[in-house]
Structures are given as structure tokens and as C-alpha cells.
Design a protein around this nucleic acid. Sequence first.
DNA 1: TCTATTGGTTGGAGCGCTCTAATGCTGTAG
DNA 2: CTACAGCATTAGAGCGCTCCAACCAATAGA
Lengths: 370, 370
Amino acid sequence: MVRPTMEDVALRAGVSRALVSLVMRNSPKVSEARRSAVLKAAEELGYSPHAMARSLASRTSTVLGVMVSDLHNAFFAEVVDGIDEVAREQGFDIIINTGGRSPARERRALESLLSFRPAGLILLSPVVPATAISKAAEQLPIVLVARSSRVSTVDTVNDDGEQGARLAVDHLVSLGHKRIAHLDGGEGTQAGPRRRGYVTAMEAHGLTPQVVPSEYTDAAGARAIRGLIDDGTLPTAILSCNDFNAVGAISALEDAGLRVPQDVSVVGYDNTSLAALRHVSLTTIDQPRAEFGRLAADALLQRVREQRTEPVRHLLNPSLVVRNTTAPPATSRRSSGSPFPSTAEGDSAGSGSRTADSRAKSQERRSSDQ
Amino acid sequence: MVRPTMEDVALRAGVSRALVSLVMRNSPKVSEARRSAVLKAAEELGYSPHAMARSLASRTSTVLGVMVSDLHNAFFAEVVDGIDEVAREQGFDIIINTGGRSPARERRALESLLSFRPAGLILLSPVVPATAISKAAEQLPIVLVARSSRVSTVDTVNDDGEQGARLAVDHLVSLGHKRIAHLDGGEGTQAGPRRRGYVTAMEAHGLTPQVVPSEYTDAAGARAIRGLIDDGTLPTAILSCNDFNAVGAISALEDAGLRVPQDVSVVGYDNTSLAALRHVSLTTIDQPRAEFGRLAADALLQRVREQRTEPVRHLLNPSLVVRNTTAPPATSRRSSGSPFPSTAEGDSAGSGSRTADSRAKSQERRSSDQ
DNA sequence: TCTATTGGTTGGAGCGCTCTAATGCTGTAG
DNA sequence: CTACAGCATTAGAGCGCTCCAACCAATAGA
């Protein structure tokens, strides 16, 4: 249970501790003979450098801290993949901590990450107050992903939520929809731009926006739909604030005997793996997640190594992925809803024909039902 | 960009560095006057202790390392929740790293975690070779979750995969199924027990096991089903190695024009959030995930604090969650498949009637189709 | 009054490493 | 033969902290 130290290696190789240190950081100013002797000794002892002692002594760190606001959301896993890729290329390690979407727990996670004095921090969709972030930014470089900031010491990587919402609205309008509601993400990060984009796009088309309060969850989506049905204000198309919300909305619609997409079209946001499942086959807005991670890591490393000080604001273009939850609206004559579901396919792998198929079935059943 | 040190706090509070140290570790042997003076100074300077220096000096660590083999899988998120809960209670922090299911990357993640000299390590379903694990176990306590080990220095927390598979088979048999295939998890961790449990249970019922090679993925499940259809060996029920595999299997079945559960019943394994979605509503085997995490953290902390040396082997009982992908098999007369899908509901929240509904529809459509 | 005792406080060594400046050693030029 | 590079190597200080032993009142016991 006790790891060998540099001293042990030095002793065994018959050199000084400093020389071992040079070899470990593969300095060029070491003779081949000594280098191999040291390497051999290290190997025999199973020595590997103590990262903390190293970083303490060098007053630098080769660690990037990553705070994932919600481990349950696969969205972040792909961002982490992108971060990891770049970090590894550049010889940095990452350590992750999670806040479980609770500000208190997230704050703790932040403290914990900070206590390791990493070279920098990447926060994925943090929910802590902005002040906590700018306070941390006084101590080390910070990059925010999926959350914006005006602080000049922090960089941000976001998708253009306004544009994403606009893509969705344009798609629905081109299918012939006029009444399109937005299930709003409320306080959720990025909910603002999406809502703005939706409103702007609706108005650009000369349509009346209908913003329905909701949240980034399955249950909230279902609840919002039930509310609309009860109010008698259900439109022909729904733009959800994210995929989870959309799936909840679809469930509630179908529970109410409505067909998706024949009676109501639904568009999600995020293109999570959930949306791609054939079973769900959700039309949605895709964000380049791994690219988020890569850009975030790049931005951070630029601050760390090149001492950049001007803030970077990446705003990536989202794209529309058409699957099987959107179709032209039913005409006013009830029995003859549009017979052809959308079959355009926006992503290469994944969603097959199953859902379209089952929708066709559900349509038939309904017409025989009433 | 420079954090204050203990020295700074001591200076400002007019005490020695050692006293500040005592206050930071809230030692009882400090007078109230001094304590509050130090706390005030620390507050004013925005001081927080340097975890690495602390652990270097004390030769102990209050950090638990967690290696998550796959961040994309929400299964692990819940285990981490459990770990975090216990760790936090006991004053430990956790740092996470991920291996992305690649042995090479996982090895690197392990090295990285090790370089922080944490008090112990919890590995969630690791894919590195056993030798790598036992080597690491010489340096610090290790707990394995969802992977077994014979090494006496490592503890393990698993579900009883044999029992889980047996529950699934019993359920299917009780519905009247006789031909039940198992889509096998191959090399995947825990695939062995599940396969054994399946085979044993089948034989106990006097039935012939049919083990089909597959993997823990969506795509693999679909592929396996297509193979069975091509061979003409498709049974009336499928027990998948996990939920992802099951969802892939369902897609492939429905692509082939078969109805779930009327033509074929499908049971998953893991009860992921995916399974609970109304859209999917998968009958599956639930594992107490948060409990896995809690037990793992407990076991680790026992080794760390109480110097326990005898290995602990937790084997938790899984449970069956019946949703809407299982039903009695169709009788031989093709047109009159069992008309009633299972409606038993194993979990309180979540899956509603939508899926059962759409299955009913799909059945109708099929009878009118051919 | 003197010695123990106790509770509070402090100096200093040291954790495993890096980094600077200094050292020893060769080889070449003056 | 001395001088001086130029290179490989090393001693030693120090990173921010903990921990031990020593210290210093202030009180208690004799």
C-alpha cells in the first residue's frame, strides 16, 4: 500500500533525485545512459510520479476540471468526450464532478474541483448563480458550455438557440402549420434564446406565438400538454424546449387519443440518443456536442498556455433533424388527416421506419374508432 | 489568479500558521476567540485549503476516485448518486473519470485517478483486465461495482444476475411461453451470470435454452433479431441482456412487421430510465442502483477507516418490473393473437398506457394488412 | 513557594516533487 | 598549461500544508 518515491528510484539508479525528475519530464538534457538507467529503475519499482506533489512544486497543473451539472443526461457525456479528446492530445488529464442539478450540491462540487487547483475549469450547463462563477473566475480560467455569461474572464460555448428554434418553426410552417406552441424551458439555461427565437420566427411568419410554461423534463412536457387540452387551446404543432419534454408531450398526446404526427406534430431540441431511437424517432434540433467539448477545451488551453485574456464566445449552428414526429397538419375535415407522415431523415445512423409505421397504424385505428 | 495561503490568513489573524491549520480542521483545542479571528480572516481573504498540499502533508486523502466505464449510460449516474451521498456524509469528496468503454482509455483514466492518490477507488463496470485491477489494489482499496473479482483485496457489489434472469424466465413461462431465447451479452460484464441464470431456469422448467450471441447495444439487439428471423428460429419471447439491446430487438421485430408483445414478448435488463418511458414501457429487471453506490462507498470507507481486510461481496436482489412488452404468446392460429397486452405495472411513476395503446393499434393494422 | 498538570499555541521538519543556481567534467582555444 | 566554454548533473530551497514536540501561561496540588 505504499508507492515508491523519486528518492527510491534515484537510489536504485545511482543518480540524484533531480536527475530522475528530469527524466520523468523527459528533458532533452539527460544522457542516454542515465535516462535508460532511471527508466529501468522506475519500471522495476513500479514508480509513477505523484501528480499532486508535482503540481504543488511546479505551481502548475496538467488537470482540467469538468463540472457536469447532470450525469443522467447523455448530452453531457458527448461533450465530455470532446473535452477528453482535446485534453488528452495536449497532455492534460480531466477530473469530473457532478452537481446533480442542485445549486447547493453543485457549489460543493465546484469547491471540490477548485481544491485540486486545476489549470482550468469547464462547467457544463451550471446552475449556480453567476456570481459564484465570476468569483471562481478570479482564481482560474473558466469556460462555460451551454450557458452564457457577460463576464470577460470566462469563455462560453453555446449553440445558437435562437437559430435552432427558428429552424424548427420554419420547418413546421413549411409543412403548413399556423398554430404552433412552444413548451418553454422556464429558468433552464438556454431556454431564453430558444423562446426568443421561437417568438421572432413566429412573428416573421405573421403568426401569433403561444408560449406555454414548462420545464426540461418528461413529466413537465406531459403536464403542459394536459393543460392545453383542458384549456381547449391545443395547437397543431408543438416545439418543446428539449427532447425529454417532447417525449413527455407525445405521451400525453397519445394518452389523450391524439396521434403524432397526424393530429399534432412535435419537435424536440438537443437530438439526444433518446430522439434517435427508432421507438421515439423524434424530429429535433441537433447540437454539435462533441464539438462543444473540443472548443471548450481549446479555449481553456489557450488561456492556460497562451495567456489569452480576451473572452471567446463560440456560437455554434444547430441543425434540424427531421424524423417522424412532424407532418402537415390535419385539414379541418377530421376524418382525412394528412395521410403521409414526413419521412425525411436527417441523421445517417439510427432511426428507422418503425415509428412512421406505428403512426400509420395508430391513424387507422383512430379512424375506425370514431 | 493567485489564491491566498495559510500563511496569509495567519498573518492577518495575528496567529501562527499551525493555529490556522487547527482551525481549518476544526480541532477542539482552539479557543473561541482565536477560532473566530481566524475564520474571519479566512473569510475576508477568500481562503480555502489547498487539498493537494493537505493530502501531501497528511499522507492521507479525503477523496474517493470513481471510474465510470461509460458516461453515456445513465445506469452509472444513479450509482454515482449513491456513492456521492455516502461520501458526502462522511466528509469525503469524489472525483470521477471515464474510460468510455475502451480498455486503453480506461487504463489511462485509472492512472490519472491513481496519480491523485485518493483514499480508495470505486470502479463501475470496468473493462480493463483483472490483472490491472489487482495491481492497483496493491496500492489502495478498490471496490468493484457490476463486475466480480476473486481477489481478496477488492470488494464487489453486484446484483444477482442469475436470479434476475430467473425472474424474467419465470415471468415469461407463467405467461405461457415455451420458446424463449436469450440475447447474450457476450464478453460484457455480468453477461455470464445472466446467461447461466437463463439456462438454469429454462432447464428447471423443462425447456430448451436458446442462447443467441449479441452485445449490450441497441444495434446488436436488432441484428440478433434479424438473424433469428432469417434463420426461421424466432421464438415467442426474448430475454435481452440489457435494456438497450431489448429496445433494438423491439425495433427490429416491428420493422419485420411483428407486434410486441402480441407476436413476441421482450424483456430487458437494468430498468434504465429508457425502459420507464411510456413510449418504450419495457418489462425489465430492476437493479437497486443507488444502493449499489451506497454499499460500494460504505465498503470502501470501511477499508479506509477501519482497516478492514476481509473482502466484502454484496449480491443484491434484482426485481421484476412488468410493463407492456410482455404478454401471453399468440396461439398457433395466427389471426387471433392474444388480444390483451399485459397491463400489470411494476413501478409507481412513469409508464402509462400509451404503449399498450399503440400496440393494440398496431395489432389491428396488421390484421387488416394481411 | 515549588512542582505538576492542563489547555492553548507555536516552531520546525517533512510530505514528493520542481526549479534555480551551482558544481564537476570534458574538450578546445589561447 | 591555464582559461573558458558547454554540457550533464546535483544540492538545496520551497510549494502549502500537517504533525510532533516543545513551549507557555494559568491553575491545581503539595
